[in-house]
Amino acid sequence: MRYFISLSLTLAILWLGLSGVYKPLLFILGGLSIALVVWLTERMEVLGAEHDPGLWSWRLPVYWAWLLWQVVLANLMVARAVLSRKPVTPSLFRVPARQHTLVGRVTYGNSITLTPGTVTTCLRNGDDEIEVHALLPEAADDLHSGAMARKVDWLEGRQR
């Protein structure tokens, strides 16, 4: 039930933000669309743990801000590699992912992919390692140092 309320609220905000026309007819249409989408998600059984509003904590914006900063730094690194004459030395390796929850591990894998220079190539359920392809040795070293893993652990800390 909690899931349905949070989903309906999100959809309502989305509708109000996107339409920009505030007339009774559009409110009725919006209500109908929200009901339709909620019904469809229930029928498709796609509503899961990741829609739990309890996952929203004050740590999430802090993590996003940190991640954005990492993305900017990694971008500068990759841009320098593009412009330099040297050939790149990519590598494929595995890093441990010992986050407790599935959501935590997926967050970690997705963060690795979002940061330029590293792409998650394989993340299996029940396997506590992530296979990563890195463009530069520096990017690989960053991952091996485990700074991002610790940050995701910290993000996970309050969530369960």
Binding site: V78, A79, V82, P87, T113, L114, T118, L135
Partner: peptide
């Protein structure tokens, strides 16, 4: 990022170049 897309040697490295243009 576009230059990297052309310059890098294989699919995986090009993916990294593409991700510059997709994030920053």
């Amino acid at each position: 990022g576009g230059i990297g897309l052309l310059r890098f040697p294989d699919v995986y490295t090009r993916l990294h170049a593409g991700s510059i243009t997709d994030t920053l």
